[in-house]
Design a protein around this nucleic acid. Sequence first.
DNA 1: GAGTGGTCTAGACCACGGT
DNA 2: CCGTGGTCTAGACCACTCC
Lengths: 233, 233
Amino acid sequence: MSTARRAGYRDVKQTILTRVRDKTWPLGTVLPGEVALAAEFGCARATINRAMRELADEGVLDRKRRAGTTVLASPLRHAKVAVPSVRAEIEATGATYRYSLVSRAEQPAPDWLRARLSLAPKAEVVHLRCMHYADNAPYQFEDRWIVLDTVPTALNESFETIGPNDWLISEMPLTDIELVFSAALAGTDYAAFLDVAPESPVFQVERCTWLNGNAVTLARMTHPGSHRLRTAL
Amino acid sequence: MSTARRAGYRDVKQTILTRVRDKTWPLGTVLPGEVALAAEFGCARATINRAMRELADEGVLDRKRRAGTTVLASPLRHAKVAVPSVRAEIEATGATYRYSLVSRAEQPAPDWLRARLSLAPKAEVVHLRCMHYADNAPYQFEDRWIVLDTVPTALNESFETIGPNDWLISEMPLTDIELVFSAALAGTDYAAFLDVAPESPVFQVERCTWLNGNAVTLARMTHPGSHRLRTAL
DNA sequence: GAGTGGTCTAGACCACGGT
DNA sequence: CCGTGGTCTAGACCACTCC
C-alpha cells in the first residue's frame, strides 16, 4: 500500500513542481483548474489553492482570474538578503561592536538627494557620518541622511552614543526597503576611515527606506574590499 | 455604522502590524492565541491563522506550537534580489545581448572548489570562461564550474553558442541558490576582458546553486565598477 | 496532559476579467 | 456573461512542546 495517507499541500506543491520540471507541463501551459486538481489529488480545493498560491509567490506559476494558472515562461528566482543593523551583524560574528559619530549636521536636502528620495523642494535633513568597528577594526563607514519631514524627532537626538540605524529601528516603523550594491575605489576619504590604501576597492551598499511612500532615510554604507555579503538561507 | 463589513486576513494583518508598531504589543510580547483573536476580530480562526502565518513569513512574528506567537525582538527585514539569466537582465534594459565563449575545459575540481561545494575527492567539472556584452559593451565576465556528477550532460555541450546560464536553466532544475557579493580590483585579467583599467574596481557576484543538497554549479561573475545591482521590489 | 499552532475539509460567496 | 481564482467559515483532527 502507499505510504502517503492523503495529499497535503506540500505533496501537491512537490508534484506540481515535478511536472513543471519534467516538462509534463511545459512553460506557458495552462494548468487544470483548482477543482480538477482537487479531484485528481483527492483533496479539498483549499489545499490545491494553498499549494498553487505558494508556487505563484515563489515565481513558478502565474495566476489570473478567469485566465487560469500558467507555468511562468521565465523561472525567475529570488534570493533573500538580510537587512540587519550593523550592530547585530557584527555581534552575530562574536566580535565586539563599537560605534563612533564623525559628524552631524542639519541642512537642506541637496538636490541629488531630493531627486533620489522624491523630497519636497525645501526638505530638511540630518546628515550623519559615522564609523562602525568590529573588534576595533574598521568595519563600515556610514553616510546617512534622515528626512526630518518624516522623522522630526531626529532633531532632538545627538547620535553620539547610539548609531542612527539602531535608533531608527527602535523609533520608526518602515514599509519598504531598497538596496543598491556597487564597487568603488576607496579614495582619500574612505581610505582614512577604513584604514586601507586609497587605491584599494571598497564595497558599497546604499539602503533606502520608506514609510508608506514617504522617504525615511538614505544610508550609504562603505566596507573595505575584503567584505563579503552573503544571501540569507 | 462601520464601513468594514467583516475582518479579512488583510485587515487582521494590518491591525496586528499597527499594534506591534505602536508598542501595544512590545517586542517579545506573546500575542493572544488564534481563538482569542478570532473572537476579537469576529472572524474564523483560519483567517487569523493566515494573517499571522504571513506576518511570520515576513519576519515580524515568531510562531511556535504550545509557546504561542511572539513579536520578534529583532525585526529582521529582508530584501529580494532577482536572479535572472544575464541574457534576460540585459534584454530587459532594451540592449542587445551578445555572448562569447572564451575557454572550455574538462578537469578535476581544484581543491578550493571541492571544499567550497563539498564535492567528492575525485569530482570532475567543466570549467568555462565567457563574456557577456550589452550593445557590444563588456557587461560581465563569467567564470563557471559545472559539476559533472550532478550535470553529466554538460560533457556533450560545447557552450559555443549558448551561455552556461541559459543552458542550465533549460536543462537543470535547482532547489537552492546562494549569492556572495564583493568588490575587487580589475587586475590585468579582468581589465582586458571588461575594457577597464587594471587599477579600477570591479563588482563581483558569486552564485552557487544546488539540487537537493548536491552542488550543480558555481559561477563567479565580474562586472565593471560602474555596475549597480538593485533589489527587486 | 493540555494548549497552541498546523493543516485539512466541504461548502459558500465574491471579484475580476476574458469572451 | 460566467468561469476562474480569492477568500471566508465552522468544525475537525493532528503534532509538537512546555509544564
